[in-house]
Amino acid sequence: MTSTAMPARSRPARALTRRHHRRGWAFVAPFAAVFALTFVAPLVYAFGLSLFRDQAFFGGTVFVGLGNYTQALGDPKFWEAFGRVLLFLAVQVPIMLLLALVAAFAIDSARLHAAGFFRMVIFLPYAVPGVVAVLMWGFIYGDHFGLAADLNHLLGRDAVEPLSVNWILTSIGNIVTWEFVGYNMLIFYSALKVVPPDQIEAAAIDGAGALRTIVSVKLPAIRGAIVVATIFSIIGSFQLFNEPNILRTLAPNVITTYFTPNMYAYNLSFGGQQYNYSATVAIVMGVITAVIAYAVQLRGQRKER
């Protein structure tokens, strides 16, 4: 959170008593109550579950301490899934954010014809439900009546196989990029709109061209927005689920039940009834995500100084 461009805060009114302030709780209480039920309680409950294990022969559960965690950390399926989302993160997120940045700068530059139209259409995919986006792209990828099939027909050979082992991660990356470039573009664009015009003007007086102004004035000014978008994208990559899970119908042999950590946790619960271990995997993944998101935020803040 930068302090640039923050309007002067109004002085707290003196007459406001402590009694008044305490009433603030009444506004926060409903949120806090539901938050406790749907955020805090599940986390606590999941942690409790993760300390136990089903007994194979006798039924019931037995306390195993951190046994499930040791198992998860040595579980090749978990690490395979983790490695896959890490690779996805390393490739897809930079591409998506770069496209979003370029689009935001282009729309903000006033050099574009019909900028408002561009802004709206590029944002449009965000309004498409993820499930519909995947179904749609799944059809397009398909060799029944998709555009991929048309393309192969045109080329006379199977040049494009979006649902094969080698292509599948790219195909998923394409869907996620298609869905979220517009959303990120809008975050950047909103931040660009509040860059003080005098800074841009000063750069112009110094003889800076459009590119130079972007690099030395606009980019630093929207660093906060870039950090926020990066954090959300990291979280999104780590919890990748919808796209591979829906595409699994079309490519059951390519997408395994442990394709991503989230799919693994889901299938442990709903395919294997291994609730205790499933809770453990979810917690491990949650902790890793939170730590990385926090690290990115710290790094982003440090650079601001």
């Binding site: 926060v28 999941a46 780590f238 919890q239 993944m285 949650g286 995500t289 939170a290």
Partner: peptide, 23 residues
């Protein structure tokens, strides 16, 4: 309250979904 809520933004929604189901 504010710190907890900001922390909650970083908790992945889907990681929470399985525990929520169990509860």
């Amino acid at each position: 309250v504010f710190a907890v809520v900001l922390g909650a933004i970083a908790v992945p929604g889907t990681a929470l979904a399985v525990p929520t189901f169990l509860l």
